[in-house]
Every structure is written in C-alpha cells, then in structure tokens.
Amino acid sequence: MTLTELANPTRFLALVARLMPWLTAATALLLIAGLYQTFAVAPDDYQQGATVKIMFLHVPFAWLAMFGWAIMSISALGTLVWRHPLADVSAKAAAPIGAAFTFLCLVTGALWGRPMWGTYWEWDARLTSVLILFLMYLGVMALWRAVEDPSRAARAAAVFTLVGAINLPIIKFSVDWWNTLHQPASVLRLGGPTIHMSILAPLMVMALAFSLMFVTLHLAAMRNEILRRRIRTLHLMQAAAPRAG
C-alpha cells in the first residue's frame, strides 16, 4: 500500500484497524520484557546505584520528545509541499503525545537529578533545551486550539513546526554555550567512555517498546482525528441542508 493510496481516509482507517491489535500486543510484550530486564537483570551502576533504573525511562522519553517533533516536521512538509490529506491529521495527533513524553522526560530527569546532583532542577544544557522543546509543544497545541477551521490551523502549525525544527539545533547550541559559560562543568554525568552491554541491552528494549507505544498511540489519535473531521463535515452538512423533514 503506497502513501498515495493512504490518502483515502477510509483505506487508512481500515489499515489502522488491521494493524492496531498487532501493534498493541507488540508494545505490551516489549514493555514487559524491558521492565523485566530493567528490574531483574540489569545490574546497578557502580557510581549511581539503583537510581540508574530511572535512566531506562528517561532516555527513551528524551528520544521520543525529539521523535515527536521530527514526525510533526515531516507531516508539516506533507501539508505544505505535497498537500497530503493525512499530513494535517498526523501533525495534529502527534503534538499532545510528543508533549506528554517531553513532560515525562523532564519529570524523570528531575527525579533522577535530585539524588544524583542534589537538586531537582539544574540549569543543565540538556534539561533546559528539553524544557524549551516542551514550551514549543505547548505553543503548537495552543495554535491548533486557536482556530476552528482545521486546514487553516494545519498550515499555520506547519509553518511554526518547520521554523521550530530549524531553530531547535540553534537553541541547543546556544544553551550549550550559555551553560559552559555560567557553570563549572562539575555535575556528575552518566557514562564515562562506554555504556556496558548489561545496561545498554535493556535500554534498547525499553526505547523500542516506548517507540512502538508512540506509533500505536499516534495511529489511534489519527483515527480519532479523522472521525472528528467526519463528524464536523456531517454537522456542517446538517446545518447547510434545507429542512426536509
């Protein structure tokens, strides 16, 4: 099934209906496997002790925070360049999911930072960049909510998403620079030269599980959005139709 065929929302809905059980099952299985590995297999870090278990959440959430914006950017291109009918839907559906994972990234980061750095919030370059990303997610959602006409909102959101995608690396770079200027680089960081396989393997499983969860939720949210637009059309037709009986 090509991308052009998927432009038909009915076909897309049929595909989603067929994929959904498999995706849900795969997500659940991977999540269980990942959690088992995290708590039963993975050793404690020699420096951080058991708090390293927070990393198995934090890192996948950070990855998904960026993944969400990437999906929105590709969808924005789809809206502005190819005018793919599903691109609007995809962009709108991805925003709250991306925002939720970005929020989780911040919270788990804070809860990890407290025992490790001694403070919930450090104006660390990475934390600050993610905070700005979260603010931009909220901005996009506000933009979507500001207009009733979905296609008009889609084009505005697409322009903002792409400008944001250009700006995000610049923000990251600036915050890095600002941070090294203001802070002695003494915070304890994860890592050292390499991450040992016993830590890396569960991390990969968790990252894959949460990525699958993102995709599943994204498809489900897209389905909701398509139905919402159908209802909107029906309401408009109902309002426009002459009163026949």
Binding site: L138, G139, A142, A146, G164, F173, V175, W178
Partner: peptide, 16 residues
C-alpha cells in the same frame, strides 16, 4: 498566542 510562539524562538538571540 504571538508571544507564546515567538519567545522560545528568540532564546538564542537573548543568550548571545
């Protein structure tokens, strides 16, 4: 809405 959208984008300018 304008300020919510624009302020995050101007952070690099402020920093430098």
């Amino acid at each position: 809405l304008l300020s919510v959208l624009v302020l995050p984008l101007s952070i690099p300018i402020l920093i430098f």
